[in-house]
Amino acid sequence: MDSAGKPADFSNALEFFVSAEALSRFKPDASIARDEDPALQGDAIFGRTDRGFHVFADFRMTTSGTHAVERLQVGYELAPDTLVWLGRFQQPASAWNDASDHGQYLQTSITRPYIERWEDDEGLIPQHIAGALVESRRALGPTHGVEFSLGLGAGAALSSTGLQPIQIVGQNDGTHRLAAGARLAFLPQYLGADRIALLWAHDEFEIHDAAMQLGLQATRAGLDVAGAQVDVSLRAWHFLGAAYFLQVRYSGFGAAVTERFNAGYWQVERSLPHALTAFGRIEPSSNTQRSRWVQAIGGDDDWAYRRDSIGMRWDFARRQALTVEVSRSDTSLARLRELRLQWSAALP
């Protein structure tokens, strides 16, 4: 900022997160309906802070057809670092959203873990809530800190194409039900990047689509998520992981039925000379192959019950990175191998 300064009582933020990706599949099987990653994607982030009031918007565009207001929030800072928001926001019980959200540049790997996928990408857990969100970060003694987030409102509806969060622009079918999510994080250093967190979410659904009713054998469902997150750095090493325990209760078609399955991921990163970062990630799960929820929401044969990835990222210039990632995914029908190359940046 070499020009004249800004007025004292407000500040504006305008950031663009953009990425371009190329994907190659080894031994592609034409019989498997495999989703394509968007070749180009971008998020425009606008924020304004004025005398404790915050306005925040996130507009997303991709070459696979997404043009959406992902988040629109209006908030007030009750005390320093304690905010109350109203609007559509990301549910706080996601470890990946907390770390990198939509910003491809902010995540070391190219791919999001399967269990953290967005609703429009056949994600299993609703990632957006329209309602109220409280976020707070407090010191805990002279060194440590604690971070707390609680969101409550209308969650995703369940349609023939999967989970559908409330749209800010466009039509909603009126079947959105209660959703809640929370994260409680211990920060080993109050102002550091490390955190160890407990995650919790609850979502309720009414199922009106006949095919979905048949697939799930229910007209109502309740999803409970409990999880834990670890995000710590040790010298040149960075460990990032989350484990989610999911329980779905089905009712409306005879006796109520409950199913449980687990999914998670563990990612290790190592900083190397010349601004390089090597990374590897495993994404194990259990009971997902027998889950009605995974079969119905995961959609086609795309959902992998296990994926292993390795890759390398090179940070160059200012806020730009090139990343290469190789992965092996086990789906219900086949083992898939993929190679991705990505350029990502945060602008300006």
Binding site: I45, G47, T49, A57
Partner: peptide, 12 residues
Amino acid sequence: VLGLALRQGREP
């Protein structure tokens, strides 16, 4: 600081 901009719209 970019993470804070992305999560809460705060200016770096």
